[in-house]
Computed example of a mutant assay.
Amino acid sequence: MDFDTFLGRVESRGQLASTEDALRATRITFETLGRRVDSEAAERLGAQLPGELERFLTKEEGTERFAWGEFVGRLVEAGGYDEGAGGTAAHHARVVLSVVDDATTEGAVDTVRERLPAEEDWDELFALVDREERPAAEGRGAE
């Protein structure tokens, strides 16, 4: 999937106002996730994404430990969301991950999931990935 198609799907699926909003949601999701997972997982996933997006995921050095709630808080802060917009920021991150799932080989998103603590609320990030199959027009491998 190319850069424009990726952002178009984030914009559409997330019901965002513009491509710029889709890029912002993607950037902050990838940068924040890139701080949380180890570099190997980030690089493996990033290698399957358009280069313009891969750099957001893989540019961070080192891994930080933080919980789902802090992840959402970091999204809000980095994205300039209004205070109390954690639900919106989390939804945008879920949308980004669902498009990543479409754009990558089967199991690529699971590599990231496996690097996150199972006992915390991280499954929230994968809620759209885990829901029932999306329509065939948006399914895996569709361009």
Rank of each mutant, 00 (worst) to 15 (best):
M1Q: 10
F3P: 02
D4H: 14
D4R: 15
D4N: 15
F6R: 09
V10S: 08
V10A: 06
E11N: 08
E11K: 15
S12C: 12
S12K: 15
G14A: 09
G14F: 05
Q15T: 11
Q15R: 13
A17R: 14
A17D: 14
A17G: 09
S18R: 01
E20A: 13
A22F: 05
L23M: 11
A25Q: 03
T26M: 05
R27Q: 15
L33F: 03
E40F: 09
A41W: 00
E43V: 12
L45N: 03
L45T: 01
Q48C: 02
Q48F: 04
L49T: 07
P50I: 03
E52L: 07
L57F: 03
L57D: 00
T58L: 02
T63P: 00
W68K: 11
G69F: 06
E77V: 13
E77Y: 11
E77I: 09
A78T: 09
G79N: 05
G86H: 07
G87M: 06
T88A: 15
T88E: 15
T88N: 11
A89V: 06
A90S: 15
R94M: 12
R94H: 04
V95Q: 05
S98L: 07
S98N: 06
V100W: 00
D102H: 13
E106G: 09
E106N: 08
A108C: 03
D110H: 09
V112P: 02
E114G: 12
E120K: 12
D121K: 13
D121H: 10
W122I: 02
D123S: 13
L125Q: 01
F126S: 03
F126W: 07
A127G: 05
A127V: 07
V129K: 07
V129T: 13
D130L: 06
D130A: 05
D130W: 06
E132Q: 15
A136T: 13
A137G: 09
G141E: 08
A142F: 06
E143R: 14
